[in-house]
């Protein structure tokens, strides 16, 4: 187990250097820079002066120099400062990630509560009318663009549920937890639609596969109750593919968050990235990309580990 963990991390090192190179290079390829944007269209300022402002921000340093600086700073746990505000990025990014995590986790919870039972029902009553209905529903759920469902939810809320859920922003720092929940609710509900559909589908197909296994037939033959068969034997073993797929869908979730946050003006990571691109704030962009890709790695690693928990037969060697 320990060796397995170590090996995964060793494999990670060259990958990590590559990721860092990519995340610092990509933003710098975008035309224009932070000084151009800060000066805007109305300023009368000489090109010399603008060049000076660039060098103050370290934008005139060569790419290898900037890469080396960034590696050094990262090694000391420093994400750098925003070019726009000059402020340290650590707290800013942490705040935004927490906001997005609220939405993502809430959506995941909704999806698990609705999606897994739906999948179980679909598998139990497969080839019945219900299963076809479920199948269609989940496909429709997958086909709906999140920004569209979000917009329509927003419309419904402004017209019929005025004041129940806030339509912009996030709760103030220090607000009680239920306030945060209230703000995260609509974005999470929007995000939950496709995630629920995915979950229901995987659960269903995994269950069907497991229900066809010999040991289920044996259990049934032994007279074990149907409920026990489904929930104790089948569901637990079906969870492996479900968890794997969820890990793979982390990208879908994080990607969906970008448009959803725009629709609800929810100041999470997605909105942060969009503004950082618009303002060419390289440090923000590279740090967020880096953290997200690390997060990806960690999630997939946890997924691997969870196999052992869900199916003790798998060992790590």
């Amino acid at each position: 187990m320990l060796i397995y963990t170590l090996r995964r991390f060793l494999q990670l090192t060259p990958m990590l250097l590559g990721v860092i190179l990519v995340v610092m290079l990509l933003p710098r390829l975008v035309p224009g820079d932070v000084v151009t944007i800060m000066l805007g269209s109305e300023s009368v300022i000489s090109p010399d002066r603008a060049a000076e402002m660039r060098s103050l921000l370290g934008l005139d340093r060569t790419i290898p120099e900037q890469y080396w600086d960034y590696l050094n700073a990262l090694a000391q746990g420093d994400l750098g400062n925003s070019l726009r505000t000059g402020r340290s990025l650590g707290p800013l990014i942490a705040d935004r990630f927490i906001l997005t995590a609220n939405v993502a986790l809430l959506a995941l919870m909704m999806a698990i509560i609705v999606g897994i039972p739906l999948g179980v029902i679909g598998a139990r009553y497969r080839r019945s009318r219900w299963s076809i209905l479920l199948q269609t529903f989940s496909l429709v759920g997958l086909s709906l663009p999140t920004f569209w469902t979000g917009t329509i939810l927003l419309l419904v809320v402004t017209f019929y549920l005025e004041g129940v859920f806030p339509t912009i922003g996030s709760a103030a720092a220090g607000a009680p937890w239920y306030e945060h929940l209230r703000y995260a609710f609509l974005p999470a509900l929007t995000l939950a639609v496709p995630v629920t559909a995915v979950l229901a589908r995987i659960t269903q197909s995994a269950m069907i596969e497991v229900l066809a296994q010999d040991y289920i037939t044996v259990a049934r033959a032994k007279g074990v109750g149907e409920r026990v068969v489904i929930f104790k034997h089948a569901l637990r073993n079906s969870l492996i593919p479900v968890v794997t797929e969820l890990g793979l869908q982390a990208g879908l979730i994080l990607g969906g968050v970008v448009t959803i946050e725009l629709v609800f003006s929810y100041p999470g990571v997605g909105l942060l990235v969009l503004t950082a691109i618009n303002q060419r704030d390289y440090p923000i962009l590279q740090s967020v990309l880096l953290i997200v890709s690390l997060l990806f790695f960690i999630i997939n690693y946890l997924v691997d580990l969870s196999y052992g928990f869900l199916n003790p037969r798998i060992t790590y060697t």
């Binding site: 917009t151 402004t158 339509t167 912009i168 725009l262 629709v263 609800f264």
Partner: peptide, 9 residues
């Protein structure tokens, strides 16, 4: 749209 929704809400 977000600004206008926030205002009407």
């Amino acid at each position: 749209v977000a600004r206008s929704t926030a205002l009407s809400a």
